[in-house]
């Protein structure tokens, strides 16, 4: 805001965004938590909708709609020869801070690097753009499973080779990313705002996720093999 952006028409500088007085706030919070478990049932999946990207997907739940597009493998800006592809994930959201998005994107990159066959695409880059179209959930951690799912569909839609179908689940503000039928723990994201948990609780969470992982994986497999 301080630096005037002359490339965009942003309107007068003195303007203030609308602030809605929240009259009846946060009472349906508990209801939300409960529906969490059944959320897998209400996911809608689509792929191949963006024609100027190599692959794309839309994953929608009741409160989240993400549009992911895959560009590449395409040439990189690197001057030296890279034997493996580089993977980039860019998150575009109106709601969340850039710094938080950056952190999540780094987390996602490290998770996805476990499954994308980067060595098959020398000297190229694969870019994933995740657009947040509907973002009614307040915590970024809730988006992680959906983001991973949409990335996987978009990558497969682009025909980029992946060695495994990985998935993620969020329970109690902790996102767990699993691969290899749930045997492999690829990543763990704990929301800083969540309460302190000891190792025992964490282990329980992971075990719970492993149980549910197969059903979400099955859903993805059904989708991709049916179209």
């Amino acid at each position: 805001m301080n630096v005037q952006d002359r490339r965009r028409i942003l309107g007068p500088a003195g303007a203030k965004p609308l602030v809605f007085a929240n009259a009846e706030a946060k009472e349906d919070k508990t209801v939300k938590e409960e529906t969490q478990l059944n959320k897998n049932l209400s996911i809608s999946l689509q792929r191949g909708i963006i024609s100027n990207a190599n692959g794309s997907s839309i994953v929608e739940t009741s409160g989240i709609s993400l549009l992911t597009s895959v560009y590449g493998p395409r040439s990189t800006r690197s001057m030296s020869f890279e034997p493996r592809a580089t993977l980039n994930i860019i998150l575009q959201s109106n709601k969340f801070d850039t710094s938080n998005l950056k952190e999540i994107s780094n987390f996602l990159i490290s998770v996805l690097q476990c499954c994308v066959c980067l060595e098959k695409y020398p000297k190229s880059g694969i870019d994933l753009f995740i657009n947040f179209n509907i973002e009614d959930e307040d915590e970024l951690v809730q988006y992680i499973p959906i983001m991973i799912m949409s990335c996987m569909i978009a990558l497969m839609d682009a025909d980029i080779e992946v060695s495994d179908i990985i998935g993620g689940l969020t329970i109690d503000h902790t996102a767990v990313c699993l691969g290899q039928n749930g045997d492999q723990l690829l990543g763990l994201w704990k929301d800083p705002s969540s309460d302190e948990q000891d190792a025992l609780v964490l282990n329980e969470t992971i075990a719970k996720c492993q149980e549910q992982y197969s059903s979400s994986r099955q859903q993805l497999i059904e989708f991709i093999s049916n179209c």
């Binding site: 490339r7 024609s51 100027n52 990207a53 190599n54 560009y71 590449g72 493998p73 395409r74 040439s75 990189t76 800006r77 580089t86 980039n88 860019i90 190229s124 880059g125 694969i126 870019d127 682009a158």
Partner: peptide, 29 residues
């Protein structure tokens, strides 16, 4: 692959990658 075409690239009358093009980049390129 399609992402090299005008859709992303665009060399139409209204050049899409001139001007600020220097600072407009894809992450890989």
């Amino acid at each position: 692959p399609i992402d090299g075409g005008v859709g992303t690239n665009g060399h139409s009358v209204v050049g899409v990658n001139g001007g600020s093009g220097g600072s407009t980049f894809s992450m890989s390129q």
